[in-house]
């Protein structure tokens, strides 16, 4: 007697391939929907924030990203450039062989293998689930090991009493601080940082930010258009901030 439930070899293959492709394709479709996070949901590794900086588009002498960062985070100084806090700065690089000068914005590179977190004695330096490397100032004891460990000099230390902090950006004496990809903005649903917005507003579009897990994010589009590279790739820190055009 013939079993009605047997399926032909051909049918079996077709069905299993359909099922498999559903497993692979569906999550892709969902992850494309949006990275925007409602404020009451905790961050997860489904999103992985990253930034791509096109050095060719970065205009020499323009400081709009730096100023926007200072405004967003209420960073004000004491006219002591050696020690004043700076979360993003312009760096001049000179290629020793060709003598070519490159100016690029330097900020926390949000490494996947962050040396700052490796050396932190209290666990205050940590990498959040969504890839943002930051300082938990509530547990930071101000030892500054992280500043020494960072090959990019991305972190600053607050040396003096501050008084006019912004509500959205608490910061104070005795703690290390650095770029946190505007975590407060992002947690409230934004998918952009103050520096990226400022750069777009200037019309330079050198900075592209977004979710690296989302193929349609601005950062991934920028990366697909132009080969990006990591600074000091030999250190294998796997930074999520990458550079193109130099």
């Amino acid at each position: 007697m013939k079993n009605k439930h047997t399926i032909s070899r051909r049918n079996f293959l077709v069905k299993s391939i359909t099922a498999l492709s559903a497993i692979y394709v569906v999550p892709d479709i969902f992850s494309n929907v949006s990275a925007a996070k409602p404020p009451n949901i905790e961050v997860s590794s489904k999103t992985r924030w990253g930034m791509s900086i096109d050095v060719d588009k970065c205009v020499d002498g323009c400081t709009s990203c730096i100023d926007a960062c200072a405004d967003e985070n209420g960073l004000y100084g004491f006219d002591r450039p050696e020690t004043d806090s700076q979360w993003i700065r312009k760096l001049t690089l000179k290629d020793i062989k060709t003598e070519k000068i490159t100016v690029l914005p330097m900020l926390c590179q949000h490494c996947e293998n962050p040396p700052c977190c490796d050396v932190c004695p209290t666990g205050a330096s940590f990498r959040r689930e969504d890839g943002i490397v930051m300082v938990n100032q509530h547990t930071c004891i101000g030892c500054r090991y992280c500043m020494m460990a960072c090959p990019f000099k991305a972190r600053s230390f607050v040396h003096e009493n501050l008084t006019k902090q912004l509500t959205n950006s608490p910061r104070g004496k005795g703690c290390v601080e650095s770029c946190n990809f505007c975590a407060n903005k992002i947690d409230n649903g934004s998918d952009s940082t103050a520096c990226e917005e400022a750069c777009m507003k200037e019309g330079h579009n050198a900075i592209s930010f977004g979710d690296l897990n989302n193929p349609k994010s601005r950062v991934n589009i920028a990366i697909s258009k132009k080969p990006n590279r990591r600074l000091r790739a030999d250190l294998k820190l796997k930074q999520t901030v990458t550079y193109s055009g130099f």
């Binding site: 400081t63 730096i66 100023d67 200072a70 960073l75 004000y76 100084g77 004491f78 006219d79 450039p81 004043d84 806090s85 700076q86 700065r89 312009k90």
Partner: peptide
């Protein structure tokens, strides 16, 4: 705000 780029 003195933390402007020019100073740095």
């Amino acid at each position: 705000n003195l933390n402007k780029a020019s100073d740095l």
